[in-house]
Design a protein around this nucleic acid. Structure first.
Lengths: 220, 220
DNA sequence: TTTCTAATGTGACCTGAATCACGTTTTAAA
DNA sequence: TTTAAAACGTGATTCAGGTCACATTAGAAA
């Protein structure tokens, strides 16, 4: 197990192994519900899971993607909050659950683990803040370009070295960029016409990384 | 000192007191610059400080307000990052600085302190995520109402129990709500006409808290 | 395979809010 | 107290992007 718990001591690893429980979710299934009380922290051992929040009018907004090695619900468990987002399997996914109290005790008792959590939170906070700026100040096409770069960073390429190694529906991509399905489609098409990307079904091939970066105006 | 460091051990408090340095900033002065390397963590002992990020076109976006008891720069120090925002004194402000390495060692060595940091980060993350949803999904007037409620929560009222105990320029309020000065003005006026608030100079008096909450559509 | 449903692409239209422009008021400085 | 600069209010205008409507395609189920 990579992630925050990789610095546990031997006896703790043993106790963890006996307490954790393997689980399996089919594509589309919900792992945990927004606004429910977290009983467990989930470590994804396979597949891909999206964290979504439901907005005012029921529109879903993607908060995060998580995949193998990521942990779900630890923010809420450590903060003592309800789940702030629902976790939904985007493909058949496997994970193991760790009881809430146990997870907390690991974090509390292991300075190394604590510090790792701190560093992770710190990164997440930075990302969130950047996203706020981006959404309030950048026009949609830039945000889409930026989202593509984000996906590149997180999931990398397929063997051809150009095709993004993740498959998203248009609404999902739209949700990352903070726009609508239709608008996302339109600008993806624009990028395609500009020979920056190539679309084949849901696959996105990045033809011109430089231009894409330019389109995202990523000075920083 | 409230805040994250209140659980230090005696000898640490002593060492802290000898290492920390009092500082004073005049209104408008910059305490630390975005994208510079953080040498210190600052604890505000008086006054009020805004954290701002500069967007693509140089437009400033307010990320946070901080006042007495708050700490500036610990996110960056703990994450090992550059300052992600500049801190600017909104009024004459006093603070004390703690050297970076010292602060880190306090956090690393004290499980209680670590855990407090974790909880604080957790809260901040939740707030940030909520803000992202809000900005992408709520129209401006709702966001303004929400911003007012946020200010109420953070700064409370003056002695009359109705006037917000913080003074902001229109652009600052606009920046919190993620809009422009003009638009902020307009909707504040609208709220005033609806007898929800009353504006006297920069002072904002909340006449009808219920209606305000309704305007923010704060189901959650 | 066929059938049904979900996902997608695209044009037409509409609107919320940004931008522009400018007069007025407030604040700070001299 | 005068003066200059910053902050504010408000109307007119513009436009990015959301919404709607519908045709097309892809995927899943039967």
């Amino acid at each position: 197990m990579k992630s925050v718990l990789c610095d546990l001591q031997d006896d703790e690893v043993a106790s963890l192994n006996s307490s954790k429980r393997g689980m399996f979710f089919k594509k589309g299934q919900t792992i945990c519900h927004e606004d429910s009380y977290p009983q467990n922290v989930y470590c994804i051992t396979g597949g891909m899971v999206k964290l979504i929040q439901t907005g005012t009018d029921g529109k879903e907004q993607i908060v995060h993607f998580t995949s193998e090695g990521d942990t779900i619900g630890y923010r809420e468990v450590l903060g003592g909050d309800m789940y702030s987002s629902s976790a939904v399997a985007m493909e058949d996914s496997a994970m193991c659950s760790i009881p809430r109290a146990l997870f907390i005790s690991y974090v509390r008792k292991n300075p190394k683990v604590s510090f790792k959590v701190i560093q992770r939170f710190s990164k997440e906070l930075e990302t969130a803040e950047r996203k706020i700026i981006s959404i309030t100040q950048k026009p949609v096409p830039e945000r889409i370009a930026q989202s593509l770069l984000l996906l590149e960073e997180s999931y990398g390429y397929e063997d051809d070295g150009m095709t993004l190694n993740i498959i998203l529906k248009r609404d999902e991509l739209a949700s990352i960029a903070g726009t609508t399905r239709e608008t996302a489609t339109r600008f993806l098409r624009t990028f395609e016409r500009m020979k920056i990307i190539e679309l084949t079904g849901k696959k996105i091939k990045i033809l011109d990384n430089e231009k894409l970066k330019k389109s995202a105006r990523l000075q920083k």
